[in-house]
Computed example of a mutant assay.
Amino acid sequence: MKSPISNVLSRLHKVKRTGADKWQALCPAHDDRRPSLSIREAEDGKVLLKCWTGCEVAEIVDALGLGLVDLFPDDRRSLSNHCTGPMRRPFDYREALQGISHEATVARLIVAAINRGDKIDPESLNRLAQAEQRIDAALRAVGGVQ
């Protein structure tokens, strides 16, 4: 039987290793032209997925023909058998800052195009608004904005 990470990676397109136990790929849940899906294998073998355009994990695994349970190693699929209670990932400020940095870069690129006098399509304007919303949400999540 394949490991969860092998199972997920084998179903993705344009997979690129970005670090130890980290990859990027095209998100299968939307019409992705540039890789926006971050994939990470946690120390306990579970697979973590993050689409930077906003797709939910359930949408991603469904598009892969998998279920959420397929993101976990066999020994972690039924937590009730292990008396561990609900799995909760510790909050990682680095990931929040990486997300804010990514959204700030998106905003900077769109604003630079506007400053150059480029015609901005509605999709880019919507993406700029989305970047602002995501930065605001990340700041609220870490307690930075009331």
Rank of each mutant, 00 (worst) to 15 (best):
Q24F: 01
A25H: 00
A25F: 05
L26K: 13
L26H: 12
A29H: 04
D32H: 05
R33Y: 11
P35D: 04
S38Y: 08
S38E: 07
R40W: 02
E41G: 03
A42Y: 01
D44A: 11
K46S: 07
K46E: 02
L48T: 06
C51F: 09
T53I: 10
G54Q: 08
E56M: 09
V57D: 09
V57W: 07
A58C: 10
V61F: 03
D62S: 15
L64W: 04
L64D: 01
L64I: 14
L64F: 05
G65A: 04
L66V: 05
L68F: 02
P73I: 00
D74C: 00
D74V: 00
D75I: 04
D75L: 01
R76M: 09
R77P: 01
R77I: 00
S78C: 02
L79E: 08
L79K: 15
S80H: 07
S80W: 08
N81H: 13
H82C: 10
H82D: 13
C83Y: 13
G85F: 06
G85W: 07
P86M: 13
P86W: 10
M87G: 04
M87F: 08
R89A: 11
P90R: 13
F91N: 09
D92E: 15
R94F: 12
E95L: 10
A96L: 11
A96K: 15
Q98L: 12
Q98A: 14
G99I: 07
G99D: 10
H102K: 05
T105A: 06
A107S: 06
A107V: 11
L109S: 11
L109Q: 05
L109K: 04
A112N: 12
A113G: 13
N115G: 07
G117L: 02
D118C: 11
K119Y: 04
D121L: 06
P122I: 12
S124V: 05
N126M: 07
L128E: 00
L128T: 06
Q130G: 14
A131W: 01
A131Y: 03
Q133C: 14
R134K: 11
R134E: 15
R134C: 11
D136M: 05
D136K: 08
A137E: 15
A138L: 06
A138K: 09
